[in-house]
Design a binder for these strands. Structure first.
Lengths: 271, 271
DNA sequence: TAGGTTTAACAGTCAGTTGTGTTATACGAA
DNA sequence: TTCGTATAACACAACTGACTGTTAAACCTA
């Protein structure tokens, strides 16, 4: 991550401009499949060099692919894995989910946090409340960085093979480490779900998430609206396996009704 | 860590002034045992408020203890444990040690790095060389942060209970994780040694360092000059247990001769 | 080789952060 | 209570670093 990846302060006018320009580029490229650089300079009004730099960054994040003469879109399954990319979308929704999750935590509890950007929002909030001593387990490096300096937080890091895409420790040893623990609540998120089932596109992630589910006495699933009513290659677990599902407001009523047949659904209020 | 903890760029006139002022304060307090704040404003020429802020920072680092009316020195064994404090002293020497250590590493190797600031210097250099693929194991969070973005580095994080003082993962699960691994070289450092024996003041650290020694086919000990001919509460291991000892130039000849009777000594050239 | 395309190098602008001091208020010990 | 001490609040200057554009060189491809 180069610049404003995990920042908290105000986004700054400058960075904001950069953000919206890159978003416009992504939207355009995704819509058309391909685009030339000059085409994008006209779209954004920025200089050739700036567009090139934006494209380099987006390519590094795996969102687009550069070739001589222009760029093309990546299949969504590829770039949606990128931790860096996911951190920037649906932030308001994730914030709301995190707030709702916070309400489930009581002082003295031990909780586990999986490799998801939604959970990073949750981690940031854990220090705020005087939740008293709190034990937090995670394999997600950005979460560790956030939690390490917090008072009253006992951080337990899960080690293993570092995975750049997810910015987390995975693999056999991570699974073993998780298997050796039991926590009061485990907070999970995944990339896709239907009313009946949850999914993820990567088998390695499925494995660690399953181990984490085993380690939690209660399992809470946090899902922003973009992930609902979608599937991915690998099945993670039936929806009914989760004790609570936290979603945002504005989800289709029929879907919510279907979900309520499987588990307890909590609707997180915005703001 | 607040500001210029792990920076690399030029120290800046301002920060440099701050550094030397704090060093002067520490020197004064250590020499006299105690000091009043007004006394220190005269010593440094800074305002009352600035001195207070310096003292707050030093107290947070564990170097001095504040009380109403002034400050007192901490026993050296206390503040010498502070990762943040140790990072700022003997940097040139540690740099030289790291360079020498680098020469022992060959492409494709797997290495382990323990919880010591000297090793952080080493970690920073691992990306420079085109050492080809390199597997690096560590329980030291700052090292993980440095290594995570490096190309060609396969990072294996050792998890466990996070310890704020050392900025690292310790405890039973860390030891188990280390015990499950074997690497080509393990790079260690410790707080004190004599010709015959190595020491550390904290039992938890001794335990993990011993586990790491077991995990390494070759054991390399990096020691800056301030640590030589000193002891600490707990014995870590005989000097002869290390395959190589890397020290700086300028160490007393007789001591070097004694050390050479125990192990292979490498003298790191400055620069 | 000639066209456009990409990268490298340089420099300027601007925003945010840090370090500092001054003043005002709160605190603690005698 | 009272005086010295400690913190909080505000303001300011300096510095850093991010972002951008321009120009020049290198590169690819037809």
């Amino acid at each position: 991550m180069t610049s404003s990846a995990g920042r908290n302060g105000p986004p700054s006018r400058r960075t904001q401009a950069r953000e919206s320009r890159q978003q416009a580029i992504v939207a355009h490229v995704v819509a058309n499949g391909v685009a030339t650089v000059t085409e994008l300079t006209e779209l954004t009004g920025a200089s050739l060099m700036t567009v090139h730099r934006d494209l380099d960054e987006l390519a590094r994040q795996g969102v687009v692919r550069k070739f001589h003469g222009g760029v093309s879109a990546q299949p969504s399954t590829v770039f949606e894995s990128s931790s860096e990319y996911r951190l920037r979308v649906q932030t308001a929704e994730k914030e709301a989910l995190a707030n709702a999750a916070l309400g489930l935590i009581e002082p003295g509890m031990s909780i586990m946090i999986d490799t998801s950007t939604t959970n990073l929002f949750l981690a940031r909030k854990l220090g705020d409340l005087g939740l008293g001593p709190l034990t937090v387990v995670t394999n997600y490096l950005p979460a560790m960085q956030v939690l390490r300096s917090m008072q009253d937080i006992h951080l337990i890091g899960v080690g293993g093979d570092y995975n750049t895409t997810h910015d987390a420790f995975l693999g056999m040893s991570a699974i073993e480490a998780v298997a050796a623990l039991t926590v009061d609540i485990v907070f999970l998120s995944t990339s896709a779900m239907t009313a009946s089932t949850t999914y993820h596109q990567e088998p390695d992630i499925v494995t660690i998430k399953r181990a984490m589910m085993q380690a939690g006495q209660r399992r809470v699933l946090l899902m922003d609206p973009t992930k609902l009513e979608r599937t991915a290659l690998h099945r993670l677990a039936p929806t009914s396996e989760f004790h609570r599902l936290v979603i945002n407001e504005g989800v289709d009523d029929r879907l919510v009704a279907d979900l309520r047949e499987q588990t307890t659904v909590v609707v997180a209020p915005p703001r």
